[in-house]
Amino acid sequence: KKSYVLIKVKNPKTKETHTIVVPEENLEEVLKALASQPNVKVVDIERFP
């Protein structure tokens, strides 16, 4: 059974918020990819039960 993680990201320029759902096993690479985006800020990470 896969567990999923909900990542909320915000664009500081446009103030838009997006929610991305990723499998927990991919969380680290997704966070690394997001960290390299200049106008993306991770605001929240939630685990799915």
Rank of each mutant, 00 (worst) to 15 (best):
I7P: 00
F48H: 06
L6R: 11
Q37G: 04
N39K: 04
L31T: 01
L6Y: 14
E28D: 08
E25M: 05
V43S: 03
R47H: 08
K13V: 13
S3I: 12
E25F: 04
E29N: 09
E16P: 01
I20Q: 02
K8E: 02
V22A: 03
N26Q: 12
V22G: 00
I7L: 06
F48V: 12
V42Q: 01
S3D: 04
F48G: 05
Q37F: 10
P12W: 15
Q37C: 14
V22W: 03
N11Q: 03
E28I: 10
V40Y: 10
V30E: 03
S36Y: 07
D44K: 12
L27Q: 02
S36D: 06
I45T: 03
A35G: 06
H18L: 11
R47L: 08
N11R: 04
S3M: 14
P38L: 07
P23K: 09
R47P: 11
I20C: 09
T14A: 03
E24K: 05
I7G: 00
N26G: 06
K10Q: 13
V42A: 02
V22T: 04
K41L: 14
T19H: 08
P23C: 13
A35V: 05
A33W: 15
V30H: 03
T19A: 06
A33Y: 15
E24V: 08
V43M: 11
L6D: 01
K2P: 05
V9K: 00
K15Y: 09
P38G: 10
Y4Q: 02
P49Y: 09
V40E: 03
K1W: 12
K41W: 11
K32R: 13
K15T: 06
E29S: 10
N39S: 06
V22S: 02
V21L: 13
V9F: 15
N11E: 02
I45R: 01
L6G: 04
N26K: 12
T14N: 05
L34M: 04
V9Y: 15
K2F: 10
P12T: 15
K2W: 07
N39Y: 09
F48Q: 06
P49W: 07
P23F: 12
T19P: 02
K1Q: 10
V43P: 01
L34D: 00
K2G: 12
K1N: 09
A33R: 12
N39D: 11
K2R: 09
K32L: 11
T17G: 03
E46G: 07
P12V: 15
A33M: 13
V9H: 02
K1T: 10
V42R: 01
I7E: 00
K13N: 09
E25P: 03
I20S: 01
L34F: 07
V43Q: 04
E28M: 11
D44H: 15
K2T: 08
V22F: 03
Q37I: 10
D44C: 13
K15R: 08
K41S: 08
V42M: 03
K32Q: 08
F48I: 13
S36G: 09
K10L: 14
N11I: 06
F48M: 11
E16K: 14
D44N: 14
N26L: 13
L27N: 00
K10S: 11
P23N: 09
K2V: 10
E25R: 05
R47C: 09
K15N: 13
V42T: 02
L34I: 07
T14P: 00
I45M: 06
A35Y: 15
V22K: 01
R47T: 06
V40D: 02
S36C: 10
I45H: 02
V5F: 15
E16V: 11
K8A: 03
K41C: 14
V42F: 03
V5G: 01
K10Y: 15
V9A: 02
P49E: 13
H18C: 13
L31D: 00
K13S: 09
Y4M: 05
V30G: 01
I7A: 00
N39T: 05
N26T: 07
E25C: 05
E16F: 10
E25G: 05
E24C: 09
A33C: 14
V21Q: 05
P49D: 13
V21K: 08
L27T: 02
L31H: 01
N11G: 04
Y4T: 02
D44S: 14
D44E: 12
L27W: 03
I20K: 02
I45G: 01
Y4L: 05
P38H: 08
V43G: 02
N39M: 06
P38Q: 08
T14Y: 04
S36N: 10
P12E: 15
E24A: 08
V42H: 01
E28N: 10
T19E: 06
S3F: 15
L34R: 00
K32G: 04
T14M: 03
V5Q: 01
V40R: 05
E24Q: 06
K10P: 00
T19M: 09
V22Q: 01
L34G: 00
E46W: 14
T14L: 04
L6C: 04
V40K: 04
L31C: 02
T19R: 07
I45D: 01
Y4H: 03
Y4F: 09
N39L: 06
K41R: 10
K2Y: 06
K13A: 08
H18K: 09
A33H: 11
V30P: 00
A33N: 07
F48Y: 11
P49S: 09
Y4C: 05
E29Y: 13
H18S: 08
K13E: 09
L27E: 02
E25I: 05
V5H: 02
I20R: 02
F48N: 06
P38A: 08
K10N: 08
K13P: 02
A35I: 07
E28T: 08
Q37W: 11
V43E: 04
I20A: 01
P23A: 12
V30A: 06
I7H: 00
V43I: 12
V9C: 07
P12F: 15
P49L: 10
P49F: 09
V21M: 13
K41I: 15
T19W: 15
L27M: 05
K8C: 06
E24M: 08
P49T: 11
K41V: 15
K13L: 14
K8D: 01
R47A: 07
K13W: 14
V21E: 04
T17R: 06
E16I: 08
I20W: 14
L6T: 04
I45Q: 02
A35S: 09
K32Y: 09
E46Y: 15
E28W: 14
E24G: 04
E28R: 09
V30T: 08
K32M: 11
L31F: 03
T19S: 08
K13G: 07
V40F: 11
A33Q: 09
K1R: 11
K13D: 09
I20T: 01
K2I: 10
K32F: 10
D44I: 11
F48D: 04
T17L: 10
P23G: 06
P38D: 08
F48A: 07
V30Q: 03
K8R: 14
K41P: 02
V9E: 00
K15F: 12
Q37P: 02
E46N: 08
S3H: 13
K32N: 06
V42S: 01
I7F: 01
E25V: 05
P38V: 07
